[in-house]
């Protein structure tokens, strides 16, 4: 396991003119609806504790109004917390002074927005250069860096177009290139792919995973789409009404939902497609003579073989060592509980 990159401790956010006065009320168990009805203040985040590991993709999921966009904005302090601590590499972001904060945003974090947030009056290369020019990097160097990232996201030849001349997917590639151009170690993605149509969205997800293989950034990814969360997340945190209700690996969320809210979220998911063989395999039985299947394959992909042969398959790791088995029994139990 990597070390903890971002540590969020006892984070509260209450929106309203007298937010501080209501911390205690919230601590005593007042929930979002009650706080609004009784005190006319909006509860954004309610005692969030979350460890985000270095070089991992942490997905934060929830319905709209659950506080996920509020949470991500605390990491680069676009929103001031009412109380609590956000540690990045053991430095408390909430205690930064003005210049430290600007410096932190310029060098340590990059952000990608749902509606792209590109500058409509600047062309693509200028947009990608934004972070660099704010930092004061000289022109030839920033041009070179910008061109590298424009190339990386596949927008070669579009560098002198304006944002509204590009499609949504292309605009978000610009957004991604802009965020990566300053080489931050943390990438904040706020519903970055939610405004894109399904095919483009899937492409962008693949591209992000592909980039991440080499970049190894710490990515915080906000989404309301479970399929996206399951595809991207090393870990998935689920928010409801400002509270963190569960944080865990995708298969934990699917197999052991913490409460009704999470269960409702996951009930329509095709588990056979999302779950990997390794999460349901029988570790005790390690047959040598059975057909082999990789532990990272989806259950769905081994279904035809199991149905055809009615046999037990042996599960192998990436080095082809047999580490367990999977048979119709395990598959059936997973499909039945769906």
């Amino acid at each position: 396991m990597n070390k903890v990159k971002i540590k969020i401790e006892n984070l509260y956010k209450i929106f309203g003119p007298k937010a501080e006065n209501y911390i205690q009320v919230v601590r005593d168990g007042t929930d979002k609806d009650e706080l609004l009805a009784k005190y006319n203040h909006v509860l954004g985040l309610d005692n969030i504790n979350l460890d985000i590991y270095d070089q991992s993709i942490q997905v934060v999921m929830g319905l709209s109004g659950s506080g996920k966009s509020t949470l991500i904005r605390h990491i680069n302090r676009l929103i001031e917390p009412t109380e609590g601590v956000v540690l990045v590499d053991d430095q408390d972001v909430t205690r930064f002074d003005k210049n430290e904060l600007l410096d932190f945003r310029r060098t340590r974090t990059g952000m990608v927005f749902q509606r792209f947030g590109l500058f409509p009056h600047q062309n693509i290369i200028e947009n990608v250069k934004l972070g660099l020019s704010i930092k004061g990097v000289d022109k030839s160097e920033s041009n070179e860096t910008a061109m590298y990232w424009i190339d990386k996201v596949g927008l070669n030849g579009f560098e002198f177009k304006f944002p509204n001349q590009l499609s949504g997917g292309m605009q978000q590639r610009v957004g991604l290139a802009r965020a990566l151009a300053t080489d931050p170690d943390i990438l904040l993605m706020d519903e970055a792919f939610s405004a894109l149509d399904p095919l483009i969205r899937s492409d962008m997800q693949d591209q992000l995973l592909d980039l991440q293989k080499n970049l190894k950034k710490t990515i915080v990814f906000i989404t309301h789409d479970l399929d996206e969360a399951l595809k991207l997340g090393d870990s998935i945190a689920i928010l409801n009404g400002g509270k963190l209700v569960q944080n865990g690996k995708p298969e934990d969320i699917l197999l052991n939902p913490a409460d009704d809210y999470v269960e409702k979220f996951v009930q329509d998911v095709n588990r056979a497609k999302v779950l990997k063989v390794k999460s349901i395999m029988n570790k005790k039985n390690q047959p040598n003579d059975a057909p082999k299947i990789n532990m990272n394959d989806s259950i769905e992909s081994c279904l035809p073989t199991i149905l055809e042969t009615r046999a037990t398959l042996s599960v192998v790791d990436d080095d082809n060592n047999i580490i367990g088995s999977i048979s119709d029994k395990e598959v059936a139990s997973i499909l039945r509980s769906n």
């Binding site: 676009l78 509606r115 500058f119 704010i134 802009r178």
Partner: peptide, 12 residues
């Protein structure tokens, strides 16, 4: 546009 302004903020 608030989001454009927020983007400028986010990049410091």
């Amino acid at each position: 546009d608030k989001e454009v302004l927020e983007a400028a903020d986010a990049f410091g």
